[in-house]
Design a protein around this nucleic acid. Structure first.
Length: 566
RNA sequence: UGUCCUGUGGUGUAAUUGGCAACACGUCUGACUCUGGAUCAGAAGAGUCCAGGUUCGAGCCCUGGCAGGACAACCA
């Protein structure tokens, strides 16, 4: 079913990275080989920003007939967990990408990295520093002021080797020693000022267990991992641009041919009204501002999946936004546009009433019922039709009735005739209210001749309403989501915490909604269009007795827009 | 008082070896419609951060400014 829509996807847009790879290919680099990798740290769940990177890296492999590895950058056991390793693999697969047998970990290279460190020590290019973190940091200078050298910088290779071996053996306390590269404390590039290579961490690693007491820094592991995996193009985000000279310095010490991964940086994704920092997302999860990493309000892949987004829509989005070095801000509405576009083509239509108002068809025989034919998806004839039960008592949307309608309101009102979709023309005769003056019920009459929704005399109505038969409807809980933050750039305020912009109305639970019986056997993640309302999918929280739907995104609503602008 | 990166309609991206700025979203019209959805037709909206220069001709090249971002974790 998704095959036909997938093949319709327009040819992927090109970008400056594609262009540079094409140039490399033209120059015969790497014997025409193209090999990328997606290198997440397993310290949190993947989010829509990662999706951009995943689509880019796997997309390059697809486009150039190359390969793309999945590699976990797991050099910091204090923050990394197996749960994240698993969720990341699930999410990448769900997005539709395959790393085949090329699943790697930076920890696969711990031995090699350690050996390389010893080699650098022997060559006099690395040394053990006994100073504490604060001292080292002070000596490092600032971006505008050069640093100065550590008193331990000129130890002999023998002494360094001895110390590093003892660090490795666990003889020292955490923080007491580090191994540093001997490069240039006066370099205008901070990263070249004798960067730390290894630190002592007596932590349990999710893969290597308690084997190591020292762990390599990311900067010392990342470039070499790419090198050892034969990566030709190391795609990463802008902030690593300044790290490139350091990565190249390491590879210079290592390489035995002219092969070297080429690092190309691009701008990470920023979306309006959302935060993209794993640290901040973790904070929301830990402090229970949301219900877990897969809360449908989260910009995580798992959250979007639960919300009802499809892999296709995310891939299309990612293609649409392009890839550049400009650090911009994408409007979330573009993401929403992408789901609507896809769901419109594939979603099963169904009628559901979120905010029920009872309607009694007074001239419809009591106890009678019938089935009317409805189209499953007007965008896809092959999806066929279904039967929808009709009876004397119905529910319609409260918003579809107004006692004193304004000029441009086309829906039901006293004395007015409208169409019930696929059913009959009905006219409102009486408005029943309770003692508080609240409308509890509408009494209408129907025109039997208009069965199916057309009147034989060619009479027109201005509105078509969705409805549901009271006795046949499935009762459901519906969760309506709004943006998690009510500020365009919640993380962009220096003096205000991003949590101050949390939208208190980001989740609205409607406990008593009525959906046509068709959804009875729906499975979690099945998506629907509730006609005239939006796209919804069944949540994992559903049980056999209770259906729970998430609203993925509302339909475009020009009526609401009109009202707002007035 | 450093190094590196970036600067095209509201937003995001295009523009073959320099040849009078294109596309998508959004916005606004209108058509159609048993979803105020979708679809279709059309419109408005930038003269490419600024100033010089090279050139018959510059968003693309040069010079100088200006603006924004990144870099000072034993994080990645």
């Amino acid at each position: 079913m998704s095959n036909s829509t997938e093949s319709k996807e327009q040819a992927k847009k090109s970008n400056f990275i594609h262009l540079q790879i094409e140039q490399d290919l033209k120059e015969g680099k790497n014997n025409g080989r193209v090999h990328t990798r997606f290198p997440p740290e397993p310290n949190g769940y993947l989010h829509i920003g990662h999706a951009k990177s995943i689509c880019l890296n796997f997309g390059i492999a697809e486009k150039f007939g190359g390969k793309c590895n999945l590699r976990f950058d797991d050099t910091n056991p204090a923050k990394e967990e197996t749960e994240y390793v698993e969720s990341i693999q699930k999410d990448v697969r769900w997005l539709g990408f395959d790393w085949e047998d090329r699943l790697f970990y930076a920890s696969d290279y711990f031995d090699k990295l350690h050996g390389f460190a010893i080699e650098l020590i022997k060559q006099g290019k690395a040394y053990v520093d006994d100073q504490d973190a604060e001292t080292i940091s002070q000596q490092k200078g600032t971006p505008t002021r050069p640093g100065f050298e550590s008193q331990f910088r000129n130890r002999t290779p023998e002494e360094n080797l001895n110390l590093f071996n003892r660090m490795t053996a666990g003889e020292f306390e955490e923080g007491s020693h580090v191994l540093r590269a001997k490069i240039d404390m006066a370099s205008p590039n901070m990263h070249m000022r004798d960067p730390i290579l290894y630190r002592i961490m007596k932590a349990h690693h999710h893969r290597t267990g308690d084997k190591w007491c020292v762990y390599p820094m990311y900067d010392f592991a990342h470039g070499q991992s790419d090198y050892w995996e034969g990566i030709t193009h190391s795609i990463c985000t802008l902030e690593f641009e300044v790290h490139r000279p350091l990565y190249n310095w390491f590879i210079d010490q290592l390489k035995d041919s002219d092969y070297r991964p080429r690092q190309i940086e691009f701008a990470r994704l920023n979306l309006t009204y959302t935060i993209m920092s794993k640290r901040k997302l973790l904070e929301l999860v830990k402090e229970k501002y949301v219900n877990g990493w897969d809360d449908p309000r989260m910009p995580t892949i798992s959250g979007l999946r639960r919300r009802g987004y499809t892999p296709e829509s995310i891939r299309n989005f990612s293609d649409r936004i392009g890839v550049t070095k400009v650090d911009g801000m994408i409007d979330v509405s573009l993401l929403e546009y992408s789901v609507r576009e896809h769901l419109n083509k594939v979603a099963q239509r169904v009628m559901g009433v979120l905010n029920p108002l009872k309607v009694v068809i007074t001239n419809y025989p009591e106890g009678q019922e019938e089935e009317l034919e409805a189209i499953n998806n007007p965008e896809d004839e092959s999806m066929g039709t279904r039967k929808v039960p009709f009876s004397r008592e119905l529910y319609i949307e409260r918003d579809d009735f107004m006692e004193n309608p304004p000029r441009k309101f086309f829906r039901l009102a006293p004395g007015r005739e409208v169409r019930l979709r696929y059913a009959y023309f009905v006219t409102c005769n009486d408005v029943i209210k309770n003692e508080n003056g609240e409308i509890t019920e509408l009494h209408c009459t129907y025109d039997p001749a208009s069965k199916g929704g057309n009147s034989p005399d060619g009479r027109k109505v201005k509105a078509t309403l969705h409805w549901v038969s009271a006795t046949h409807a499935v009762k459901a809980e519906v969760r309506l989501y709004d943006r998690l933050f009510n500020d365009e750039d919640p993380a962009g305020h220096k003096d205000v915490d991003f949590k101050d912009f949390l939208n208190p109305d980001s989740l609205k639970v409607l406990p008593e909604c009525f959906i046509e019986p068709f959804v009875k056997n729906a499975q979690p993640l099945d998506h629907f269009q509730f006609e005239r309302l939006g796209y919804f999918n069944l949540d994992y929280d559903s049980t056999v007795n209770k259906h729970v739907f998430n609203r993925t995104v509302p339909l475009r609503d020009s009526w609401a827009k009109m009202q707002k602008s007035q």
